[in-house]
Design a binder for these strands. Sequence first.
DNA 1: ATCATTCTTTGAAAAGATTTCACGGAGACA
DNA 2: TGTCTCCGTGAAATCTTTTCAAAGAATGAT
Lengths: 326, 326
Amino acid sequence: MKPTAKQVAHEADVSISAVSRAFSPGSSIDPAKRQRILQVAAQLGYTSPARRTAEMISAGTVTLVAGDLANPFYPLVLDTLAKALQAVGRQLLVYTIAPGTDMDQLTPQILAARPNALVVTSARLTSDMARACRQHGIRVVLLNRIQSDVRVNAVACDNHAGGRDAATFLMARGRRRIGFIGGILDTSTHRDRAAGFREALQAGGQSLFAEAAGGYTYRGGYVAAQAMLTQKTRPDAVFCCNDIMALAAIDAARELGLSTPDDLSVIGFDDIPMAKWTSYRLTTIRQPITRMINEVVNLIEAGAAVAIDDTATSILPGKLMVRGSA
Amino acid sequence: MKPTAKQVAHEADVSISAVSRAFSPGSSIDPAKRQRILQVAAQLGYTSPARRTAEMISAGTVTLVAGDLANPFYPLVLDTLAKALQAVGRQLLVYTIAPGTDMDQLTPQILAARPNALVVTSARLTSDMARACRQHGIRVVLLNRIQSDVRVNAVACDNHAGGRDAATFLMARGRRRIGFIGGILDTSTHRDRAAGFREALQAGGQSLFAEAAGGYTYRGGYVAAQAMLTQKTRPDAVFCCNDIMALAAIDAARELGLSTPDDLSVIGFDDIPMAKWTSYRLTTIRQPITRMINEVVNLIEAGAAVAIDDTATSILPGKLMVRGSA
DNA sequence: ATCATTCTTTGAAAAGATTTCACGGAGACA
DNA sequence: TGTCTCCGTGAAATCTTTTCAAAGAATGAT
């Protein structure tokens, strides 16, 4: 019935010992032979008992690689994901990496834990990592980041539409000198939000009045806004690529004696809890976190059934929350 | 050399099969017999291979139970802990629970993952849970919470001294109507900070001018501050039990046309990133996160060597960061 | 109350996997 | 070239899990 080591040994024309050795790391065996045995074993569907229990243990484990916990949006994501996974009885392993770093040095650690799935948010997935995951049968879901260079599942907010909505809204309010403070240039969130924003501006007969990159941080957003607002002619509105930069822009304006929204309209993206604070009342595009996480969990759960290499991309609509800042 | 099932069987006067069954959950065996076998096995130091690999896999896993990710202090803790554990090659499992909830319903899930250690922050550890952990040899560390009803390790900031420092500082600035906005009454952070604050006030010949509880949330802090500031005679200073409530107090004051620090001095606790933002420039007690996490990791690593039931409590000094708000 | 049936528990034995052992061959070094 | 060491190997020994058959306890129907 169940495939045994003996069958594998016979098929691969080696001894039973060799099969056992192939499955225990660190035992002395010719790498080529191990490769062949593993291949035959995979074909017959054989797994060693040790590996079987290992799979038992780590069954239902999801690894999250988070890039930027300093942005309050991501703790929110983490919290939502943690609760969603708890609800379906899965475990959540968390790794964080410094923003901008890639995750290659973590690869061995991550793979050693043998998670069922890998959720990556706000961090770059290298193609090496993607390949390694595919090899180990680990389902990968990119959250809020779309990469065309690797074929993986992705769930994101409709950043393009969000950018468009922001532009449309500002133009409808009669703004004529509209600026944009971006995040990190080679991220899909930056690109899509910028593209949608620019596109709608163009459709409304306007073009970008000013532009800068704020690196998704408060500090960066503050510096960028300050620079924009101290020009000879300053913008009367800015769309910021995320909320903390938008809050920074409001702070910078305030520091210069400008008031929002009279002197400067500010729109952000994310709808972090601070956006509601009375000092800010930030108008922003809300990301549908709960729905996004549901989608992620669905993809992970489906992953067990469906073939592993399908590339589903799920884009969910954001929602413009109009508060006081624009 | 190594103890085998046969030895255990002989010692416990049962068959080898029985020993095997005792170790595989769900097999039919008399519970009393299993108990006896497990005890003999523990005495001889025998573990079944399945369990051995299971221990291999989950070796170095630390579980964090976080209660309140909405307070930006805890994402900071999470990030620091994640990086520290990554550095020593351990895995971090994360669970979150709604603030105020206790963690008993998570117990089976948490134990099933067989972590090496459990770090609990901003959540209540029940004595059942503590007992279960002790039984399974899981080292427990309470972070930023001290419970006298269970005997576990704890790492915290010196909340008492922090409260004292806040009071001393406000009095030195000539404040005479000093209020306090607390968190949740039955938390040790609240109690210790309040006690230290009150004590120093008393030593300076003053007493609390006003007092309210803000539940550690922005909303709660805002409401509390608003209520205090709309009294006939309002306080000229408030010490808030954490930073988000302090920011809320500043917002509430601002909304009422009061300025900080002229009309109202505000001091917080934690030193979250937002405290530095130019709209707030919050004077606050900084918690030494890095040192606290180091301490936690030390306790966990030491846990392997030292006996399991020692009750180490490590209190680290905070530091008053003087900015603009007081 | 009695008998049949089923379920649980159990050790013996079979089956399966890992570890040990002894051997053979490939390089390293004199 | 000889010897020594180290790696890879299958056979065999050892260890563990699983299957099997039997005994006993519990349940239920008559």
